[in-house]
Design a protein around this nucleic acid. Sequence first.
RNA 1: GGGCGCUUAGCUCAGUUGGUUCAGAGCACUUGGUUUACACCCAAGGGGUCGGGGGUUCGAAUCCCUCAGCGCCCA
Length: 876
Amino acid sequence: MALTAKYNAQTVEEKWYSYWMEQGFFHSEVNDKEPYTIVIPPPNVTGVLHMGHMLNNTLQDVLIRRARLKGYNACWVPGTDHASIATEAKVVAKLKEEGIEKDSLTREEFLEHAWKWTHKHGGIILEQLKKLGASCDWERTKFTMDEDLSKSVIKVFVDLHNKGKVYRGYRMVNWDPQAKTTLSDEEVIYVEKQGNLYYLNYKIEGSEDTLTIATTRPETIMGDTAICINPNDGRFAHLKGKKAIVPISNRVVPIIEDEYVDVEFGTGCLKVTPAHDENDKMLGDKHNLEVVDIFNDDATLNSFGMHYEGKDRFVVRREIVKELEELGALVKTEQHTNKIGTSERTGAVIEPKLSDQWFLNMKELAQPALDAVLEKEVNLVPEKFVNTYRHWMENVRDWNISRQLWWGHQIPAFYYGDGKEEYVVAETMEEALAIAQEKSGNNQLQLTDLKQDPDALDTWFSSWLWPISVFNGILEPDNEEINYYYPTNDLVTAPEILFFWVARMIIAGYEYRGEKPFNNVYLTGIVRDKQRRKMSKSLGNSPDPIELINNYGADGVRVGMLLSSPAGNDLMFDEDLCKQGSGFVNKIWNAYRLIDGWEVSKTEKATEASTIAITWYKSKFQKVLATIEDHYSKYRISDALMSTYKLVWDDFCSWLLEMVKPAYGKPIAAETYNEVIGILENNLKILHPFVPFVSEEIWQHIAERTPEEALIVSEWPKTETIDEQLIKDFDFAAEVISGIRTIRKQKNISFKDAISLSVINNENSSTQFNAVIEKMGNVSALNNVDTAVDGALTFRVKSNEYFIPIEGAIDVEQEIAKLTEELSYTQGFLKSVQKKLSNERFVSGAPEKVVAMEKQKEADALAKIETIKASLAGLQ
RNA sequence: GGGCGCUUAGCUCAGUUGGUUCAGAGCACUUGGUUUACACCCAAGGGGUCGGGGGUUCGAAUCCCUCAGCGCCCA
């Protein structure tokens, strides 16, 4: 079969991906081999593939493909996440477009819409991942709301409740007024915003005096129930025990004292609104203040807002400032920047709100998970994240796990009465009824008397079980699969979700398996554009990944993603990287085209150059293989790629193939050809994790292969001994060849013109590469000589001196200048070495090895100086 | 405000316990090369006071102090 001149990525990629699928190479079953497991960070069902997924999943595929080649039973479990808030928001928006309000639907009706939406969009990302070449075990695809996974979530909730870890509490929570739900602390993003600081006068009861407070939120004055001063602040001693009158509402509120107040900030007088600020709530509890909640769930004002009732908080802010100004209560307005909490999902400004929510007590649960990372049971890569992790875990706060949403796992709490405590928690309604009858002492209770808590659980409360629940390890804790695949090996994810997800998975792992969920966590960087901006849909600075694959091929994009993504460092993505990637693929392809085009002769003898070249490459390959293994062991995937890239491009293509290449029109010895094919096959194996498609394509071209012989399931190259001396000798020869090329370029000697080369072999260097030097330098004859050759261009490698006689006159002046410069540099170098060696403290203080090396340097320099001096003498 | 980290070539980054050619790689750049795999190519080359200053040491990109700039996490 003739090879196309241009590599056609698209057809090749489709062909081999379906072949791999048909042969079931991605599928894993429990067997006798050692498992290697990865669970995918499940993408949201709302999502489309973005560059972060590309990076993340490329890395996972590299790891899983390499594990497969190394003979592990490789299992990569894919799946998706139901993403409560995001999905519900999307469905609500879609319904709105169709003129349907969520409120007009029953829960069941709404969920029907949500499921429909999920079935339509949920699998998009997974389908897109196939284009990238992801070798997931698609037969194992899971969804966080699958029946068994849902049951696992409910079981865990009930279990934690029975253990007293899950509790219901009336707390200040983060309220997203757009999604109309609470958020966990982790879902709040603080952003710096330019705002105003308003100075307002409050009258003091029974006097004409006023006091001045400073606030960023004048719209909350309707909720003020106190003014607070610092007892140590002499300025306000006269206010002690008095009362103040809140403007507009004219509510009379006490003036309390607390050292919490920052004397430096604002005026030193603080208005206290316990219903709408966490710190104020704390003051309110301490001083027994009234709590006045002035907001509706959508952050419009309620009846406490008086004539502002029904208006949005930000509208009210503008209007109330005007009114306060008219009343003469506004003293001044200053510009002020502060950090404002916003919703991770909707971007809405968070409103602190008091409400009943479900919480998970984290302190004790977190302890084993903290120890696991500190003791390196679980490795975070890069290690710098350990500190961040420790800090979060040591200061972990209780987790608000309830969400005022329908899409998700409904909380299995059932109320049998109107009292706050009149509820039971159980996995099923029937169980709930039995417990309720017992708890209430009322045997007459019916199923219809039970009302389930309408709230859903935080999405992360299901995904924290992911590494366990995908193997059904919660419902059947002793099943064969969980025992075999768990703990998984590596997790690849973004540092952004270290707390949201990774930490909580570790917690759940220890709580429900008594064991870590994974050995290593590889935290990738964030994909940014060239201007260091995070790639996002809203900025429109993210290329379409599928478009990229169409343009550069999946292999090209994979290489492009990996080229510049050291662990934990952000990746400044540039489409040129994909271009470089596809350039590499093209290079590999063309190297094979060259080999494939050779006429093979059984009678032709292997040339001396090709024999030594092949021996050399095998050693070089082993050396680089060891380096690559080391990089992988440290999760330095881009370094592993770069080592492979240079091995294939430089050592294989530029050196080996050029050294064994037969002269134009000549056949190649069968012996040499077979060796080169063997070498190529090993190259393809180490290339495969990075460029699975082109490597399989070439592999299958080389020979007819049975399915069992496919590259994807072949064997990773064995390590063999490395002949270091041979590699050194080659490097020396390469320097000689480089010297010849430099002279050719300087003197404008075309490569087509053969030259003769003489050497004074002061180094006593190996001559086994002489045939290579002749071939690669187009040298007609390589002679050993004892004395300098007259009328020749010269260069030196170490203390070896090389002569290239040329027709016509040598520019003696230029040669002398060149030599003089080289001489003075070497003399300077010698001087510094000798200075070191004559330093008594160096010789006695430094290790023997280091001193010996310095002595070697001295000897080398002395020898080199001799040869240069001799050459100079010859010229003058 | 508290904690962590970063600063090395034009760009993106390596550089392990201080000690071989340790001042590096890839890209970009400059120059030359196209009948014979690849111009998505080949070959050669230029380029850095290792953020500034101070210290420890025989020896510092590497350890310590300090200043400046940047980033992340938490409140």
